[in-house]
Design a binder for these strands. Structure first.
Length: 625
RNA sequence: GGUCCCGUAGCUCAGUUGGAUAGAGCAUCUGCCUUCUAAGCAGACGGUCACAGGUUCGAGUCCUGUCGGGAUCACCA
């Protein structure tokens, strides 16, 4: 891969900024940092490519913004021959670059398929995402997580980082024991093979079965004398029986429930390494992993390494010892170990229980170190829902106190919950949207749309299905990834299968239209060689080239912010601009050979950028649709 | 109660370090396919940027407060 030049867009703006700084020096005798001068792309209702805001200059000269704009524009033009002309509207100086500038950047770099991607910068970053529990299949929340993690990792790669993708799988604990117990008691030896069920769903069904049986058991118990006695003894004020037992559920599970006791007993046996229990655990987790792999493959995500909590949950004690030795942590009289995070605006946090066992954060300390030892990364990104904000804040502070070498490069990519139009997803109420079902649904919708149009008739059934898969997944993925991560989002299944408007398929369609033009161009032996003869660019053509020139900067910003939605928004804007151009102008029937050649290069560049941008979002492009 | 996040059109969302008349899509209505793919284009309709102050030549954006929604504040994970 030949890496592209550094961001041209930044170069043009930076060039104008430094020239403006020079002009300010000359005209007003002031020294200003180029970065402090506001230069932005000119809004489309005005004439020009870039705009300088001259309002701030009134500090130095007693003139109207218009007068300053005029004299400043003239000075800029004198200093920078690339500026063809300028105009002043209110306090805004609009500069137009020469056609030659735009023709040059288009020809020099934008027709390269790798345009926008930066050369390796030698830094390695790890991205952790997905990280499911093994008792249930993946759902819509995981889908958002996976899309964010995958996309962020692709964007970091494009920005020049070496990327390691990992997930940590919560394969232990009471949840999977519930599934194990329910299977043991109620399955009668059934397996995914014997029932034909997708294997992670099969295991999830036993988790649901456990919860169902437990609920029945609890309801029955509530009628007993023992339950009434507990209620009478412990109710608070005027609490009704119903309210009381709602809150009492966890204590019932731990103190009275037969199923609860059995599940807890199973967890104890697992922790003790009981061979039968471990064998059952391996069997059921094995089923889950097969199902997860199918789902991940369908989404199009893959990982370099899997970490398992069963292997990491005891890690971190050594680091706690180290922190004690260095005085970063302290031990209470009861033997528990704590860290004081008050200087970071937080509380004291326990790191080891008084019996010496680990807590959640202890494990993450050890895992962070393990990953550093495994890969030598300098940065780690954790894609985890925002309910864990406090945990990661604390984790990062603790790692800083331990002076871990990667501790300045930690980032929690927090994202908001996904709600449905009907409200929150609740597994207890069966409103969780399953990942496999969701993908099947959007693909079915794309299939229906495609059949209606009949544009794929000349493809084989397999090829048609491949196109339909790409379209459906594009709709789903774009719908989710276009929203800023930190925002809670409402996911309306009806809207997610929309194929028109601000959607993935809309962008795919722009690409497909270009591919069609390029196929025709090849048939007609049209190529881009005469492009340099093209004299005057149309306004829409200039706007397209300028927008293309923003692409490297967009990638850089998305990488710096860990925010794929920037790329999504940009891809949509570019596609929209292209669709309008396509409607208003013809490539292959342009007035001159020069125009034909120039436009061929232009749409080639647009197709490259759209394809790259969508690739960074984990979305594939079809050749036809 | 403390801390953090969110609040922009009927709905879903954009809105770079403060800059021009706050933008898209969906929905509703109206036009445009013998012409490179109409999953498209153009137009109409739709706003007290939650509210109130403040800073500024200029605030959706920054500061303070209020209201509404969410998360979190375990020797759970």
């Amino acid at each position: 891969m030949r890496p592209s030049q550094p961001a041209v867009f930044m170069n043009h703006i930076q060039l104008i900024q430094s020239t403006a700084a020079q002009a300010i020096e000359t005209l007003y005798g002031q020294t200003v940092a180029p970065d402090d001068i506001v230069v932005s792309p000119t809004r489309k209702e005005f004439e020009g490519d870039f705009t300088i805001v001259v309002f701030p200059f009134t500090k130095w000269v007693k003139k109207s913004p218009d007068a300053i704009g005029q004299e400043f524009g003239a000075q800029m033009q004198a200093l920078l021959p690339l500026i063809a002309e300028f105009n002043v509207v209110k306090g805004f100086l609009n500069l137009s670059l020469t056609d030659q500038v735009w023709k040059d950047v288009l020809a020099a770099e934008m027709t390269d398929p790798n345009y926008g991607r930066q050369a390796p910068n030698g830094e390695k970053v790890m991205v952790e995402f997905c990280s499911p529990n093994t008792n249930k299949p993946l759902h819509l929340g995981h889908v958002r997580n996976i899309l964010l993690g995958w996309s962020t990792s692709k964007i970091l790669e494009a920005a020049g980082y070496g990327v390691v993708r990992v997930q940590i799988i919560n394969d232990r604990g009471i949840a999977i024991c519930k599934s194990m117990l329910a299977w043991q008691k109620f399955a009668g030896g059934a397996t995914p093979e014997s029932t034909g069920a997708k294997s992670d769903h099969f295991v999830g069904d036993y988790y649901v079965e456990f919860e169902k049986r437990f609920r029945e058991e609890y309801l029955n118990w509530q009628e007993s004398e023992a339950a009434t006695a507990v209620y009478e003894a412990e109710k608070k004020g005027e609490q009704t029986k119903e309210q009381f037992f709602k809150d009492y559920k966890d204590r019932y599970f731990n103190e009275h429930s037969t199923l609860g006791r059995e599940a807890a007993e199973m967890l104890r046996r697992w922790e003790a390494g009981d061979p039968d229990t471990v064998a059952l655990w391996k069997k059921m987790n094995g089923w889950v992993y097969i199902g997860f792999e199918e789902t991940l493959a369908a989404i199009g995500a893959s990982f370099d390494k899997y970490y398992y909590e069963s292997e990491t949950y005891l890690l971190g004690k050594g680091m706690v010892e180290k922190g004690l030795a260095s005085g970063a942590f302290y031990r209470k009289e009861d033997g528990s170990v704590w860290v004081n995070l008050e200087d970071a605006g937080m509380d004291h946090k326990v790191l080891l229980r008084r019996d010496g066992t680990s807590v959640y954060i202890t494990q993450d300390l050890g895992t962070a170190r393990l990953r550093y030892d495994d890969f030598g990364i300098s940065r780690m990104v954790y894609v985890v829902a925002d309910e864990q904000n406090y945990h990661f804040q604390a984790l990062f502070e603790v790692l800083k106190k331990l002076q871990e070498p990667y501790s300045e490069g930690l980032y929690h990519l927090a994202y908001g919950m996904v709600d449905l139009p009907t409200g929150k997803m609740k597994s207890r109420e069966g409103t969780v949207v399953d990942a496999d079902d969701l993908m099947a649904e959007v693909i079915a919708e794309a299939r229906a749309g495609s059949q209606e149009r009949g544009t794929l008739a000349d493809l084989s059934p397999e090829e048609q299905e491949e196109v339909v898969r790409k379209i459906g997944l594009a709709a789903l993925k774009f719908h989710i990834i276009k929203v800023q991560p930190r925002k809670r989002m409402v996911f309306d299944p009806k809207e997610s299968v929309d194929l028109q408007g601000q959607t993935g398929p809309y962008i795919q369609n722009a690409y497909v239209r270009i591919r069609s033009v390029l196929r025709k161009a090849a048939e007609e032996n049209v190529n881009g060689q005469a492009a340099s003869q093209y004299a005057v660019l149309e306004k829409q053509e200039r706007e397209l080239v300028r927008t293309l020139s923003e692409f490297p900067g967009i990638i850089a910003r998305a990488a710096a912010d860990y925010d794929p939605s920037h790329v999504a928004g940009y891809a949509y804007d570019l596609a929209k601009m292209f669709h309008r151009f396509y409607h208003d102008y013809s490539v292959l029937r342009a007035d001159s050979e020069a125009a034909k050649a120039f436009r061929l290069n232009l749409v080639t560049a647009v197709s490259n950028v759209l394809k790259t941008a969508m690739d960074l979002l984990g979305i594939e492009m079809p050749e036809k649709m």
